[in-house]
Structures are given as C-alpha cells and as structure tokens.
C-alpha cells in the first residue's frame, strides 16, 4: 500500500514535529524536551511555555502510562474507520507527564478505567507513517 491507497486521515508534514514521526517509524517514540529547563512537551511545538527557550532535544519515551480518560466510538465520522467500530480511543498520560491519544488494542470496553496501566505499541500504516496504540500493561 502507498499513501495514495490509504483510506484514513494522514498527519500533515510539519517541520516542528518531524523528529517525532521519524521516531514513530523506528518504533521508538521520542518526546520533545526543553534544553533550557528540561520540561517535556507534547504535541511538538517551537517554544517552551515554562522558560521560553526555543532549544530542544528529543528523549525516548518509556512507553508506560495510565488511562486518563477514554471514549468508545460507535460512529466513525470518517469512512476509513467504519471497519474499526466500536473503537476505543484512550487519552493516556505517559510517565513523562504528557498525554497521547490513541486507539486501544486487546481490551473490552468494560475493562477501561481511569488510571488503568497501559503500554505503548506501534502500528505501521503502510502509508509511510506509524501510529501509536495502547494495550493493557
């Protein structure tokens, strides 16, 4: 499959976040860290909102987190997700203090709970980018 065949929304190219998406392709999620004060931030952006430094580097994410909240969608809002319904979308707080929104795998909707421990996984889309998913830890 190529980008042309992919039937779901794709992340637009963005200079500030390219290292993040590159790290996803390597199955090795990296998060943006401020060189000035060390604060880790997500989603990637050019300025630290704590110390206003525009210098940053990228640190490997532990992949460990807990469920902050979730929804189970029974309506797709995009034809590409029809086959995935019902779809459990979790907002997960990583150990690093930032959150990632991703689909859950290997979980029944009734199992979902605030603070449930989860682990990061990777799914290659076949369209030259990789998405995060979470599974119960």
């Amino acid at each position: 499959m190529t980008e042309l065949d992919y039937d779901k929304p794709m992340p637009p190219l963005n200079r500030d976040s390219k290292p993040f998406w590159d790290s996803m392709k390597e199955h090795n999620m990296r998060l943006q860290r401020c060189v000035g004060c060390g604060k880790i931030r997500h989603y990637p952006r050019p300025v630290c909102d704590s110390c206003y430094s525009m210098e940053y580097d990228w640190v490997r994410a532990s992949g460990k987190g807990k469920v902050h909240t979730w929804t189970v969608s029974e309506h797709a809002f995009h034809p590409g997700f029809l086959a995935a319904l019902p779809m459990t979308l979790a907002t997960v707080e990583l150990e690093e203090g930032v959150r990632v929104c991703a689909q859950m795998r290997d979980v029944e909707p009734g199992q979902m709970a605030v603070d449930m421990a989860v682990e990061l996984g990777y799914e290659d889309t076949g369209a030259n980018f990789t998405l995060p998913v979470f599974r119960p830890a």
């Binding site: 929304p9 963005n14 976040s17 309506h75 929104c101 991703a102 689909q103 995060p132």
Partner: peptide, 13 residues
C-alpha cells in the same frame, strides 16, 4: 496532526 489520524475526529468524540 495527532488525533484525527487515530480516529479521534469530530466534536462528539
């Protein structure tokens, strides 16, 4: 960039 590709697309979600 970060949520619609996951399927988190519309306000009800």
């Amino acid at each position: 960039e970060f949520e619609m590709p996951q399927g988190n697309i519309a306000p009800p979600q």
